[in-house]
Amino acid sequence: MRVGNKRLNILSKVVTIAILLTCVYAGGSNKEVYAAENNNEMNQSYRRANIQVGKIKPCDFLNVRSGAGVRNSVVTKVYTNDTVEVLEKNNNGWYKIKPANGTIGWVNGSYVQMQGDNNNQVCDKSKKIVDLAYKQLGKPYSWGANGPNSFDCSGLTSYVYKNAASVNLPRTSREQVNVGKTVSKNNLKAGDLVFFSSTGKGITHVGLYIGGSKMIHSPKPGENVKIDNINSSYYSRTYVTAKSIL
C-alpha cells in the first residue's frame, strides 16, 4: 500500500507540473499574439494617418505607367479631379500612385495637386495679411487714402491684400463685396473681409477679420486704424456679409 501511495503521489505531482507548464506557456503565447496584434494595429493606424492624398489637375486623361518614366507601359488612366493615394515620390518628379481602381503605377508629378498644399499657401497668405494689418494700427483715417500713412476703410483692405498677398482688390467697399466667396459669420477665418451698412441701402464699410470675433479697420474721420469686435452692438446691428478672397 505504501509503495502504491508513493507512486500515486509522484504521478499526481507530475500531472500538476505538466498542467502548470502548459498554463505558463499558453499565457506567454497569448501575450505574444496580443502584442503582435497590437503592433500590427498600431502600424496600420500609423500608415493610415500618414497617407498622402493628391488630386489630378485638369487634363484629358493621365496615363499611369508601370515605372517612373514615359517609356514604361500604361497600366491604367486617371482623369481630372480624381483623388489618388500618393505612395512614393521619385527624384525625377514622378509619383507612385494608387487610384480608386486599385491599380498602382507612376505618373508625372506635375499633374498631381497634393491635398493640403493649397491650404497651407492660403494660411501663409492670410497670416501675412493680418500681420501687415496689425502694423497699420494707430494710423489716421483719411477719406480716399490707401496708405501707407493714412487710410479709409477700403484703402486699408486694398493696401494689406496688395502688399501682403499680391492681390489687387477693387478700390471701394461697395466693389469689394462683389469679390471672392461668401462665407457665413460662423465660418469666418482670419483674413476674410467683413462688410457693414450704416444706412441699410448698400455697403458703407469694410474691415479685415483677424479671428476671435474681431476686425482691424479704419472706422471714420477723427479716428485711427484700430481693432473692434464685430459682435458689439453697433457692428452686430450693421453687419451684412463676409467674403473669403484667397
Rank of each mutant, 00 (worst) to 15 (best):
A49Y: 12
I51H: 11
Q52K: 15
V53A: 12
V53D: 09
G54T: 04
K55S: 12
I56L: 13
I56H: 07
P58V: 07
P58K: 05
D60Q: 14
D60E: 14
F61P: 03
F61V: 06
F61G: 10
L62I: 06
N63R: 09
V64D: 02
V64R: 00
R65D: 02
S66L: 10
S66M: 08
S66V: 12
S66Q: 11
G67W: 05
A68C: 00
V70E: 03
R71C: 09
N72W: 06
N72R: 08
N72L: 08
S73N: 13
V74T: 13
V74Y: 09
V75T: 06
V75Q: 03
T76M: 06
T76Y: 01
K77F: 13
V78K: 00
V78C: 00
T80L: 02
N81E: 03
D82V: 05
D82A: 00
V84I: 09
V84N: 03
E85D: 10
L87S: 09
L87T: 09
L87P: 15
E88P: 15
E88A: 12
K89L: 08
K89T: 09
N90R: 13
N91C: 12
N92R: 15
N92Q: 11
W94C: 04
Y95P: 03
I97Q: 01
K98P: 04
K98N: 10
K98D: 08
K98F: 11
